[in-house]
């Protein structure tokens, strides 16, 4: 009898795990517009990137402010490979940098080891 419970519990556990991690929907957060040419995004680094999907405009200089509050060393670097940016994020401090996306598309940003990912959507 206990084996049946474990079996059913296990199957439910597997379904729950798959749903929990893969079933989440990211809603893109728009960059704050500071002026017609400039925008800004604040990203909190805590158990991943919050927000993890950011939408910005093509040809608009966008400032990214990353603040790491997670002690996990995996998150200590952030990499925006499309823009050739790699920054060390000291714990509890804000690191800012600007990018000017010149083409539209979806680009990945991630931690140094590629464990945590975020998306950068560039639109016209």
């Amino acid at each position: 009898m206990d084996k049946v419970f474990v079996f059913i519990g296990g199957i439910l556990g597997i379904i729950f795990t798959a749903w929990f991690f893969f079933g989440k929907k990211d809603e893109a957060v728009q960059a704050r517009s500071e002026s017609p040419e400039k925008a800004e995004v604040d990203i909190l680094v805590k158990g991943g990137y919050q927000p993890s999907t950011v939408q910005i405009k093509k040809n608009k200089i966008t400032t990214f402010n990353f603040t790491r509050q997670d002690e996990n060393s995996c998150l200590e670097d952030v990499i925006l490979s499309e823009f050739k940016i790699k920054r060390f994020l000291p714990l509890g401090k804000t690191v800012s940098f600007e990018i000017k996306p010149e083409k539209t598309g979806t680009f990945d940003f991630s931690c140094g080891m590629g464990m945590f990912h975020g998306k950068l959507i560039v639109k016209d």
Partner: peptide, 12 residues
């Protein structure tokens, strides 16, 4: 590292 990650529905 685990607790905020789970809140974010990610794991490492």
């Amino acid at each position: 590292a685990t607790i905020p990650a789970l809140k974010n529905r990610t794991a490492n």
